[in-house]
Amino acid sequence: MSMDMTTVGDPGLLDTLQHEVALFARRAEQTRLGGVGQVRNSMDRAAYLLLNRLDREGPMGVKALAASMGIDSSTVTRQVAPLVDTGLVKRTSHPEDGRAVVLQLSPRGLSRLEEVRSSRRRLMAELTHDWAPEERETFCSLLTRFNHALSTRQASQGSGPAPEAGVGPGSGAATGAGAETTPAS
Rank of each mutant, 00 (worst) to 15 (best):
V84G: 05
E115K: 13
S111G: 13
E115W: 09
S93P: 11
R112N: 00
V116H: 10
S93F: 07
L113M: 05
E96I: 02
V102N: 13
L105G: 05
Q104Y: 11
V116C: 09
S111M: 14
G87L: 03
L103C: 08
P95C: 07
R91G: 04
L113A: 11
L113I: 04
R91T: 11
S93G: 13
V102K: 11
G98T: 15
T92I: 15
V84L: 09
L88Q: 13
H94T: 08
T86I: 06
V116Y: 00
H94P: 04
D85S: 08
V116I: 07
E114C: 09
G98L: 09
S111P: 00
L105M: 09
L103A: 12
T92W: 00
Q104C: 04
Q104R: 06
Q104H: 03
L83K: 09
L105P: 04
G87I: 04
R108C: 01
G109K: 02
G87C: 03
L113F: 10
P95N: 07
T92F: 03
S111N: 07
E96T: 04
D85P: 00
L83Q: 12
R99H: 02
V102G: 02
V84Q: 01
T86V: 13
V102H: 12
P95V: 04
D97C: 00
A100W: 04
T86G: 06
E115N: 08
R112I: 00
R91M: 06
E114A: 14
L88D: 05
V84N: 00
L110A: 15
V102W: 15
V101H: 03
E114M: 08
L110R: 14
D85T: 10
K90T: 08
L88R: 14
S106T: 15
L88A: 10
K90N: 13
T92E: 14
E96M: 04
V102A: 11
P107D: 10
D97F: 07
L103T: 14
S93A: 15
S111D: 13
Q104L: 07
G109M: 05
T86K: 08
S93E: 15
E115P: 02
R91W: 07
G109C: 10
G98V: 12
R108S: 09
R91D: 05
V84W: 06
V101C: 01
L113G: 08
L83W: 11
G87A: 01
L110N: 14
V102L: 15
G109N: 04
G109T: 08
R108E: 07
G98I: 15
V101I: 14
T86E: 11
R99A: 02
G87F: 01
R91L: 05
G98F: 10
H94R: 03
T92N: 06
E96G: 02
R99T: 06
A100V: 14
